Simulated assay, not measured.
Amino acid sequence: MEIGERLLHSSSFGAAAAAYAEHRPDYAQAAVRWALETAPGPRVLDLGAGTGKLTATLVALGVDVIAVEPDPAMLAELRRALPTVRALPGSAESIPLPDGSVDAVLAGNAMHWFDMAVAGPEIARVLAPGGVLAGLWNVMDDQVDWVAGLARVSGSAAIGPRDTPASWRAVTADMHLPKAGAAAWFGSPEQAEFPHGQLRTADSLVATLATRAGMLVMPESEREALLGRIRAFLSSRPETADGEFTLPMLTAALRVRRLSRAVDQLTADS
């Protein structure tokens, strides 16, 4: 994805902030625990926090969390939902925190929007030595037949290159970790996947897919036509035609540790 296209997609969520807060899933607690298990302390930054889906999971796990989000509408939803959490405007490329001030940086369905050439050094700066950088993505389990059919009908606008397990494994580590000089401050990446699910109806699953960036930037007539095809597919399947069902998912996690070098050396080298 070109830089301009990435910026267009990443800035599209504010217009749908309320729908995002209502319909996007949370994250499997087992995945978040795995992401944090090697962190040297309890201070966690949720970077690109959106409306607070990952933030809420972190709060439930009892860690000391700070949220940073660039979009004002998304940040407002987060503050409304989680008024006791310290939530700041900022971005992965300009983090409003002191050097070495957090033990882990987590990003929920957000790391692929970061400009890692800039964000990599910033993340390394705010992480304590030995701290953890982890990305989490909720992906649909297309080993389930009807989910595979949904992916075919929906196309890449609704179910993109990180939204099924095999494609996530293929693209994530190489595409989304710190690059060039910043990569020297991090160790080798690890990937893991954890069972998850979201209770949906056909209507609420359509509403969830409508919050995907590819859908939000489509011309309205094309978006409505695609959503109509998705509705028709869900109506045709016995698993999804009537009432509530569980959307089979995995929370896929990628983590890397910041090497134990002095933060002031990184500042001097940058």
Score class of each variant (00 low, 15 high):
Val32Cys: 03
Thr55Ile: 07
Thr51Met: 00
Glu5Arg: 15
Ala67Cys: 09
Leu8Arg: 15
Gly4Asn: 15
Leu47Asn: 08
Ala49Thr: 00
Asp64Pro: 00
Ala56Tyr: 07
Leu47Thr: 11
Arg24Ser: 06
Val63Lys: 04
Ala19Thr: 01
Arg33Phe: 02
Gly4Met: 14
Arg43Val: 05
Val44Ile: 13
Ala19Gln: 13
Leu8Gln: 14
His23Pro: 02
Ala35Cys: 12
Glu37Ala: 12
Ala18Cys: 02
Ala39Lys: 11
Trp34Asp: 05
Thr38Gly: 03
Thr51Lys: 10
Glu22Ala: 15
Ala19Leu: 08
Ser10Leu: 08
Trp34Met: 04
Ala18Met: 02
Asp64Val: 06
Arg24Thr: 01
Thr51Leu: 02
Gly41Met: 14
Thr55Pro: 01
Gly41His: 10
Gly62Ala: 07
Leu47Phe: 13
Ala15Tyr: 03
Ala19Tyr: 03
Leu61His: 10
Ser12Glu: 10
Thr57Gly: 04
Ala28Ser: 14
Gln29Asp: 15
Ala15Glu: 14
Gly41Leu: 09
Tyr20Phe: 12
Ala15Gly: 15
Leu54Glu: 11
Thr55Asp: 10
Tyr27Ile: 00
Glu5Asn: 08
Tyr20His: 12
Gly4Asp: 15
Ser11His: 14
Val65Phe: 09
Ala17Arg: 06
Thr55Gly: 13
His9Ser: 11
Ala15Trp: 13
Ala31Trp: 09
Ala17Lys: 11
Arg33Gln: 12
Val32Ile: 15
Tyr20Asn: 09
Ala67Arg: 03
Ala31Lys: 09
Trp34Ile: 05
Val32Leu: 01
Thr57Phe: 04
Leu47Trp: 13
Leu54Ile: 01
Leu36His: 06
Val32Thr: 13
Leu58Lys: 09
Asp26Phe: 03
Pro40Gly: 05
Ala18Ile: 00
Gly14Arg: 01
Ala30His: 00
Val44Tyr: 08
His23Met: 05
Ala31Ile: 05
Leu47Asp: 09
Leu45Asp: 01
Arg24Phe: 11
Pro42Val: 08
Ala67Tyr: 10
Ser12Pro: 01
Gln29Gly: 11
Thr55Asn: 11
Ala60Tyr: 02
Ser12Val: 03
Phe13Val: 08
Leu7Ser: 12
Glu22Phe: 00
Thr51Asn: 04
